[in-house]
Structures are given as structure tokens and as C-alpha cells.
Write a protein that binds this DNA or RNA. Structure first.
Length: 435
RNA sequence: GGCCCUAUCGUCUAACGGUUAGGACGGAGCCUUCUCAAGGCUUAAAUCCGGGUUCGAUUCCCGGUAGGGUCACCA
């Protein structure tokens, strides 16, 4: 493959705020497309607005991308390219394509003079990879402002120059940029740059179908990280928002890691309509990825939420916790609701909840006879099973479980017994018998 | 309001003129060695409306309607 045909995409966020999941989906699609095509994926921090750009926002973008595993081949900051922008600006002015324009100052901070692009006022048509042919009449745009001064280029100019200078071949961005495209095409022609291939992604929508934003509580991606969502789950979820692996011959699978996504991704399989961010599906995805973790990873995960609990016990109950939780909040709730307490301390079962303590003596006897070395879930179960079946499982198992947990809902009695140990099990059984 | 984009179950989506309109999340029900969770099975649930084109439209065209985006000296 020759160098000129190499595909280069870019993610060009501005560090003027915390980016949400919709923004990172754009990054993901740029990444996937570049990798799929054997090309490069660039990160360009669009910090032309010196007033609003903040280092902490930039850092958050870097952190988020790193966490998601979206590695870029190159990073640049738009502010470092101002020389280039002004070079082109000079040329545009010299050739009469742009001009100094006297302005009426309406608001504080406005300049009395800015630089406007001389709009050729014509129709512009481009092919959007997702939408097909799109046409605009640029007359509606007027002579738009491209710089505050000869040393202060603005967004439209900066974008076009930077994309040209870094040989961007494909611009994949949100649909909210679709109306900027004719301006950019006009500018490209004016500076003698080729028009890259455009693909405008449908927007990620808030539940009320409007553009996702802070106003709807759209969280920065790092908040999902801090809430216990796994990057794999977020990646998978974002990919499914607007793109479908089920196209063509299709597949009903939808669990894909980054590598698999690169393999399968296809811009032509990206839909055209906006997609509402469905948190429930994210939770489900997170749970499935949580289940894939190794035991050590699970323990690390759970420990983040329950740092003060006894590690030995926590290790044993981690699988149980993750069977019932899909994020940190779920685990916190389990803890607060007392659903975990019985693993750490003896419960005080409610007599009514116990229902029937008649068979507990026999259960104690059976379990007491078990050799310490044989104290496993399997053996515990086997030792009481026949008896339970004989007199009625619910008659035996329910009281046994409540005696051990004190809860109406809990893990099964065999698992609890195995975790708390023989001595403690017998003690709890005895306590319940005497209620 | 001008311009632009979009329109299949509640949600994410598949079906690129012919299907009993498929899958997933969520819901409901059942099963799964007592409860909960997980798992399995079953089930309810959709082509925005009106015209065309066609032997035949979810699919193509036109018009409505609805929703969204955008109209900065932000990006």
C-alpha cells in the first residue's frame, strides 16, 4: 500500500469541558475505522479558544482515552499550530479570499475588526459515507468569520488547515458538524487543500431525544470508570450505539472486545438515526464483562468498594457479590442493606422468619459429624440432602438458611456454611434452635 | 423561522422489493434440587401518515407529520 493511500483519521475534541460518552463514541469509530483499514488514528486537542480551554479538561481526555484503550498514533495541540493557521490566513487575505471587516461592537469583548472569509456563494455537494449525497447553498452562510485577528484564527480555519497539514483522509465526526462541512469545503478550496471523505455519525441522544449534554446528566467517561464500569463494557456499548454487527449475513452476537470490533467494524453499517443512551443495556454488558474477570481481578474490583472488610472473607464472597451486582453502586447498596453482614458476624434471626426450627437439631447433628477436612459446599449439601428430601426440603433448607443468614433472601445455606466455617455454622444453628 | 439530517417493538437494532418482520436490553410467565441472584425456555411488544412506482413495498419516489441538528468574534 502506498503512503498516499494510507488512511488517517482523527479525534479532535476541545478541552473546554468534560466529554461524555457520545464524544468518545466518535473517538471509537475513528479508531476502529483507522485500525480496520490499517491506517492511523490521530488525536488533536482543539484548544484555539484560550479562554475556555483548561488543562484539567485536556488531562481528562487523555485519561479517558487511555482508560478506554484507544491509542493514538500521534497527538497534537491546535494552539501549537497557530503559525500554520496564520500563514494560510495571510495567503487568503493576500489573494482576496478573506478580508478585514469593520464590525459593530454589540457586546463587551467584541472586536471592532475581524477577518471574514469571502464566500463565493455557491452550491456545495459532498458525499457523506453514512448519509450519501448532501447539498447546501452556502449563500446562507454569508461571509463568515475565520479569525479574530491575523494572529487569532478561529475554529473553521484551524480545522481545515490542521486536517490538511496532517493529511487527514477521513473525517468522522458527529452530525452536529454536518452544517459546518460546506464552510470547510469552501475553505479547503481556498487554500488549495483536497476535500477529505466525510462521515457524519448520528448523535447520541438523551432520553428525551435531544442531543446528549450535561443538562441531561451526561456523565464524563471517567465517572463511569469511577462508578465501576469496565472499559470493555463501555467500548462494547458505544460500538452498539449506531453501529450494528448484524448487517448483511449478520450475527446475533453482540459481545465484542476491541480487537473483534476492529475486525468487524464497517462505516457502511453505521445507521443514520440518533440513538438514545440506554443505561440498562450498559449495566447488563458490564455484568457480563465482570463475569469474565479472573478471581483476582474480581477481588480487586470488590475491594475498591469494600476496602475495610476482612480480606479473607471478602475473597470467598466476591463471586457471590458479583453475581448480584453490575457496578460499585450495587455493591454499596448490598452492603448498606445488610445483605453481606452475615458473612462477617453472627446474625440475630427473626423467629417468625425462621418459621420452623424443628429440624435444626438434626441438621446440627449431621453437620457436626462432618470431618473438618470435608467442609466443602458439596459435602455439606450431601450430608443434609437425604434428610431434607425425606422430611421436606423447604422444611429443612429454609430454616437452615435463615439460621445462617438471618435474611429472607441470601445465598444458599451450603455456600454460606462453607464460607463461615464449621464452628460458626454449628454455633448459629444452635442459637436459632434456642430462640 | 431558514437550511440540513432522520423516521422498524419502550430502548439498541436486522431485514439492501417477496420473511410467520429476526436478534439484544428491559417487561411478563415457566423451569431450574428452600429464598435471592445467575442460567434455560416461553411470551407480549414495531414498519409515523398519505399518495405513487411495481405482480408485490419496511425497503424506491413524492408530499405531509414528527423528532433532531445548525444558524457565534465556541468548538
Amino acid at each position: 500500500m502506498s503512503n498516499t493511500s494510507k488512511i488517517i483519521t482523527r479525534f479532535a475534541p476541545s478541552p473546554t469541558g468534560l466529554l461524555h460518552l457520545g464524544n468518545y463514541r466518535t473517538a471509537l469509530f475513528n479508531y476502529l475505522y483507522a485500525k480496520k483499514m490499517g491506517g492511523q488514528f490521530l488525536l488533536r486537542v482543539e484548544d484555539t479558544d484560550r479562554e475556555r480551554s483548561k488543562p484539567e479538561f485536556e488531562q481528562n481526555i487523555l485519561d479517558s482515552l487511555a482508560w478506554l484503550g484507544l491509542e493514538y498514533d500521534r497527538i497534537s495541540k491546535q494552539s501549537e499550530n497557530v503559525d500554520k493557521h496564520t500563514d494560510y490566513l495571510q495567503k487568503l487575505i493576500a489573494s482576496g479570499r478573506a478580508y478585514h471587516s469593520k464590525e459593530e461592537v454589540k457586546e463587551a469583548g467584541q472586536r471592532a475588526e475581524v477577518i471574514r472569509f469571502k464566500n463565493p456563494n455557491r452550491a456545495v455537494t459532498f458525499i457523506d459515507l453514512i448519509r450519501g449525497e448532501v447539498s447546501f447553498d452556502t449563500t446562507d452562510l454569508g461571509d463568515f468569520v475565520i479569525a479574530k485577528s491575523e494572529t487569532e484564527p478561529l475554529f473553521h480555519l484551524a480545522v481545515v488547515v490542521d486536517d490538511f497539514e496532517s493529511s487527514i483522509t477521513h473525517i468522522i465526526r458527529g452530525e452536529d458538524h454536518i452544517s459546518n462541512t460546506p464552510r470547510h469545503i469552501l475553505l479547503q478550496e481556498a487554500i488549495g487543500a483536497p476535500t477529505p471523505i466525510y462521515a457524519h455519525l448520528p448523535l447520541v441522544l438523551a432520553p428525551d431525544r435531544s442531543k446528549l449534554s450535561k443538562r441531561h446528566g451526561a456523565l464524563p467517561i471517567t465517572d463511569y470508570r469511577d462508578a465501576g464500569f469496565l472499559p470493555e463494557a463501555i467500548i462494547n456499548f458505544m460500538a452498539l450505539l449506531g453501529w450494528s454487527p448484524q448487517h448483511g449475513e449478520g450475527t446475533n452476537e453482540e459481545i465484542f472486545n476491541l480487537t473483534e470490533l476492529i475486525e468487524r467494524f464497517d462505516l457502511s453499517a453505521v445507521g443514520k438515526s440518533g440513538a438514545i443512551f440506554n443505561i440498562e443495556k450498559l449495566a447488563w454488558l458490564n455484568k457480563t464483562y465482570l463475569a469474565k474477570l479472573t478471581l483476582e481481578e474480581k477481588l480487586t474490583y470488590v475491594t475498591k468498594v469494600l476496602p475495610s472488610l476482612d480480606q479473607t472473607v471478602l475473597t470467598k464472597i466476591t463471586p457471590l457479590i458479583l453475581d448480584r451486582a453490575s457496578n460499585f453502586e450495587d455493591i454499596k447498596k448490598m452492603k448498606e442493606a445488610g445483605e453481606l453482614a452475615y458473612f462477617f458476624e453472627s446474625p440475630k434471626p427473626n423467629k417468625d422468619l425462621l418459621k420452623n426450627t424443628a429440624h435444626l437439631v438434626k441438621v446440627s447433628e449431621l453437620l457436626g459429624a462432618l470431618p473438618q477436612a470435608d467442609w466443602t459446599i458439596e459435602s455439606i449439601k450431601n450430608s443434609v440432602w437425604d434428610f431434607a428430601t425425606e422430611v421436606g426440603r423447604a422444611e429443612v433448607l429454609w430454616p437452615m438458611r435463615v439460621a445462617l443468614s438471618g435474611q429472607a433472601k441470601s445465598a444458599d445455606p451450603f455456600t454460606i456454611a462453607a464460607i463461615i466455617g464449621q464452628e460458626e455454622t454449628l454455633a448459629r444453628l444452635t442459637y436459632a434452635q434456642n430462640l
